[in-house]
Write a protein that binds this DNA or RNA. Structure first.
Length: 228
DNA sequence: TTGTGTTTTACGACCTCC
DNA sequence: GGAGGTCGTAAAACACAA
């Protein structure tokens, strides 16, 4: 899941501005950064192996409220608190990289690129995901700002954030689906990344507001789980 | 070193809601 | 019509065994 050292290998890089892919023709360049080795990540921020994915989420403190405003405050460094993480520190440690690199490294047709986000970026995103599995427009902009992005880049970044959350939810669903398939009625709960959760807890946290109609709703999944 | 499997980023198609 | 959701998938990045 959160693999070993190589995935954390770009810790000492300046933040990639979180503008890795230039899917737009007017974008300035391709920000592919080859993964260097791992040194310089603030100790304990993500750890050399990303750590246990959810067990250490408590270090980020609670996520009061559905909007994640407290988390946002923490990210912006304006909240006192648990102190295990300071985005302001990261911002200063990883100032925005220069924007313009030559458009190189195109690896796929139709302007598709792929870069590896820094641990810092993933940490930020995972923290936000921990608090809210659905991110608001405002929070996307705040995250972009917290990652030291310029105003011009922010719209692109919010798109990246949106896609990251989509992929992250897909990953979560995949994990839960796998767990459900393994669920054989042993105690009526599933050991999720967040710990031992009831089917209700799992499903209600994984699925979007109820306006969706073309996908399984939490109640549907719950029924699957409890009927197993 | 190389082959293979897994994870991560990115996108297209299609959907609903406002 | 635009925004944002899921689903499926391509392909890079990565891990690891042989």
């Amino acid at each position: 899941m959160y693999p070993g050292p190589a995935r954390c290998s770009n810790n000492n890089l300046p933040v990639q501005n979180f503008v890795p892919a230039p899917p737009y023709s007017d974008y300035m360049g391709y920000h592919h950064v080859p993964a260097p080795d791992s040194h310089g990540q603030p100790a304990g921020a993500w750890g050399p192996h990303y750590g246990p994915q959810r067990e250490d989420w408590n270090a980020y403190g609670p996520c009061p409220g559905p909007s994640g405003t407290a988390a946002a405050a923490q990210l912006s460094g304006s909240s006192p608190g648990h102190g295990s993480y300071s985005p302001a520190e990261y911002s200063s440690l990883h100032p925005a990289a220069p924007a313009g690199l030559p458009p190189a490294g195109k690896t796929r047709t139709k302007e598709k690129y792929r870069v590896v986000y820094t641990d810092h970026q993933r940490l930020e995103l995972e923290k936000e995901f921990h608090c809210n599995r659905y991110i608001t427009i405002r929070r996307k902009s705040e995250l972009a700002a917290n990652l030291g992005l310029s105003e011009r880049q922010t719209p692109l970044i919010t798109l990246q954030v949106k896609i990251w959350f989509q992929n992250r939810r897909a990953k979560e669903r995949k994990i839960i689906k796998k767990k459900i398939s393994q669920f054989d009625g042993s105690g009526g709960s599933v050991q999720s990344d967040s710990g031992s959760l009831s089917p209700n807890e799992i499903t209600s946290s994984l699925f979007p507001p109820a306006h969706r109609t073309n996908i399984l709703q939490p109640a549907d999944i719950h029924q699957v789980i409890v009927s197993e």
